[in-house]
Nucleic acid binder design. Structure first.
Lengths: 332, 332
DNA sequence: AGTCTTGACGAAATCGATTTCTTGGACTTC
DNA sequence: GAAGTCCAAGAAATCGATTTCGTCAAGACT
């Protein structure tokens, strides 16, 4: 690999007949004479000069790049969230780089280190795990925002939804529709959102008429398609199976639908309520109750908080809780 | 924002009682005495030293980061491809940053500039458009690999699948199953893969018994869900509608299924063959013929080529064409 | 014993942009 | 006309790691 013929500020300076400092001033909007500015701009254009971001960053100790660390790039919820972050960040002149951890705390730690070492302007983290270690970010005073899951740290900005309320209204809507044995498939017990959504369901079952009221119909799974399928199959195999189920995320709902289908069951005969929008190509979603999850808005809100911090906001940590729309939408 | 207390090589050197050069040598595996190494490692560990990547990159003119530029982060095909790139890159010690262009050539150009200015080690590009401008990358001699779509440039490495063959066998399988009026919904005419897949279909229709043989049943859409739905609805509204359709990508197939559903039709009564795996939660995919698209493998192959180039391979450009599996899998 | 080789390692240059410090000329002001 | 003010712009330091170059000492060989 030969050396890339990168144009430097020195070449521009030489061509314009000024000093490198003046070129820098022109590029950064500091006051220079009209004549110098003209010369520099002309030279820069002729040479197709692009400032070297690495050098600028080394000097300035900062960059215009935000890291977004997510646990599963193949989950549409997170890609929609990424879209939201990107929209907001781009509008403010920042670029976003996406880092995928696969729910692996070690990979998450690696990416956090990279974000630090790369002098990125800030980090938006959808934590893989409740035990995510952000101490190094905090220690180096780099802005961080947690999204989707909080980090149980009062000193960190966070953006979440009201998981318990969403779980409650989803489960209640099933009772209201006349179902009486409403099961629940939630995520790993170590994940905050899984607990909260399940608690919403539990509260509804305690209120529901004929409700079972214990955890016979509760299953913990892994927030993935296969786990949802297995949990659903397990529930259907019970001596007294449920007649409806609340599923705590989109991917598991897809799996649960497959299991229902295999068993010859389907909504609306079998009640199904889902926390979060179904991954798109679910062409037959009639009769499925969905708590819409504002993924993009979560991303936008998180980016907004982060940009505030990057701009120097030193106020106390804020937690933004977005409303899931309590009117459940029966899709299509 | 106070200054981050970043530990530098100088502090490690002072603590270990050696010169910064020696610290660098230890960190990079150059030969030093066992005693020096021990001192340096101890000091580095105590101070939790992490080398500053920005400085390293400025000096070394390169980094261990690969940019992956994709047109649509919300398309599972591209996220699976990203997964493949990431697996391979990580194994070689590289990080991957994902850049989403939304099919916008201007954003693509911006990200290419960033990749250059950030001294990234290389770029894997799933071009937004046949007219993508990679000339600046080429000019600066930075490794580039095109994936999914070629760039019509013989001097650039590319990884694609055999789009024509896949389209052909998909359409043929519909004829073989007894359908006679096989339509086609393909992508934008400016996109190479859309043309090739359609050509495969066209060849099959010319061979098919009772085949229509002209383009009455051909529709160009946009590779997105809504476009697929509209095109399908349009075809169904014909005086002599098709009895089967070949859809050239996953998202449009999801849309087409919705339109079929609305019309009270569904596979296997209405024939459907898709190029590429359906986005997952398509729980009722029985009777749908799918040409599996090795998205992850495409990403892995592209990363492999790129890593070769980064390692200094100067040979002529290679084009890798992955086989789509000609045995069509009838899902589930 | 004296020269040569070898190897560890420190001093200093380097990457490219930014920024402080300094200089010199133009313009005021009494 | 002399002293003071202001401002554009060049010289040089700086960010932190790498790397070349040179030094010095220990061991090898004649």
């Amino acid at each position: 690999m030969t050396q890339p013929p990168m144009v430097t500020i020195y070449q521009v300076a030489a061509r314009a007949g000024v000093s490198p400092a003046t070129v820098s001033r022109v590029m950064n909007g500091t006051k220079v004479s009209a004549e110098s500015e003209r010369l520099v701009r002309a030279a820069a254009a002729e040479l197709a000069f692009t400032p070297n971001r690495t050098a600028r960053r080394l000097r300035g100790q900062t960059s215009e790049v935000i890291a977004l660390i997510i646990p599963d790039i193949e989950n549409p919820f997170f890609t929609a969230l990424a879209r939201g972050v990107e929209n907001r960040a781009r509008a403010a002149g920042y670029s976003v780089v996406l880092c995928n951890t696969d729910d692996d705390p070690a990979r998450e730690a690696t990416y956090i280190d990279i974000a630090l070492a790369e002098h990125m302007a800030g980090v938006i983290l959808a934590p893989a795990d409740d035990a995510s270690d952000v101490s190094r970010l905090i220690a180096s005073n780099r802005p961080v925002v947690a999204v989707d899951r909080s980090l149980h740290r009062p000193d960190i900005d966070a953006v979440t939804v009201d998981n318990r309320a969403g779980g409650l209204s989803a489960a209640e809507s099933l009772f209201a529709a006349g179902f009486s044995r409403v099961g629940c498939i939630t995520g790993p017990s170590s994940v905050e959102t899984a607990q909260l959504r399940m608690e919403g369901w539990r509260r509804a079952t305690r209120r529901g008429r004929d409700a079972v009221g214990d955890d016979t119909l509760l299953r913990y799974a892994d927030y993935r398609v296969d786990g949802g399928r297995a949990a659903m199959a397990d529930l259907l195999g019970l001596p007294e199976p449920p007649d409806a189920v609340f599923v705590a995320n989109n991917l598991m709902a897809a799996g649960a639908l497959e299991a229902l289908h295999d068993a010859g069951l389907a909504p609306p005969r079998f009640g199904l309520a889902v926390f979060g929008d179904l991954p798109f190509a679910s062409f037959d979603r009639r009769g499925i109750r969905v708590v819409p999850l504002p993924a993009r808005e979560l991303g936008e809100a998180a980016a907004g908080l982060l940009l505030d911090r990057i701009a120097g906001d030193d106020g106390p940590a804020r937690t933004v809780v977005l409303r899931t729309d309590h009117r459940l939408q029966e899709q299509r």
